[in-house]
């Protein structure tokens, strides 16, 4: 190890508190409001990344409000945790029609494979991140809840 010897300059530095004053100036500069890092979270909501994967949602056709899901079951097959269950019926023309859709967010790891597998713009992992709930039973989301989308309580200033 290199030993740093005290020379005359460092004695002068000590007498005039040079290093201490440097420290003071550093902390003084941090007081600028623009440097502030705190988020006032429930009052001011943070902006999450554009590709953030949060609460799932089943999108409806904005034109007529009917579901965009074609009950192809690809999402359920893609899911590594098997947390999606799709229920369907046959219509008179023999077309698959969605009846139930269950999404268990307690098992979901938000990998987004279901979203990728979906051939229509129906299943989407939204940017909602407030997924705390009171019990496990609340974590199995049915079709109605999924189509409505997650609605967290919004606090305002």
């Amino acid at each position: 190890m290199k030993v740093v010897r005290a020379d005359k300059l460092s004695l002068l530095k000590k007498i005039f508190f040079v290093d201490l004053i440097k420290g003071l100036l550093l902390t003084f500069g941090y007081q600028r409001p623009s440097r502030n890092y705190t988020e006032q979270y429930p009052k001011v909501r943070p902006k999450v990344a554009e590709r953030y994967r949060g609460a799932p949602r089943l999108n409806n056709d904005p034109a007529d409000g009917s579901t965009l899901c074609i009950a192809c079951n690809l999402c359920a097959l893609a899911c590594p945790e098997y947390c999606i269950e799709v229920g369907w019926d046959r219509s008179d023309e023999g077309k698959k029609v969605l009846t139930t859709f269950t999404f268990d967010i307690s098992r979901c790891m938000f990998c987004g494979l279901c979203e990728d597998a979906c051939p229509t713009p129906c299943l989407e992992l939204t940017q909602d991140f407030e997924l705390a709930l009171y019990g496990r039973r609340d974590m199995k989301w049915d079709r109605q809840k999924l189509e409505q989308g997650h609605q967290p309580v919004i606090y305002t200033r």
Binding site: T27, F28, Q31
Partner: peptide, 13 residues
């Protein structure tokens, strides 16, 4: 407050 500002926080709000 001032210690919070120097630590890039907001302090009591």
């Amino acid at each position: 407050k001032f210690i919070a500002f120097m630590q890039v926080r907001l302090g009591p709000m």
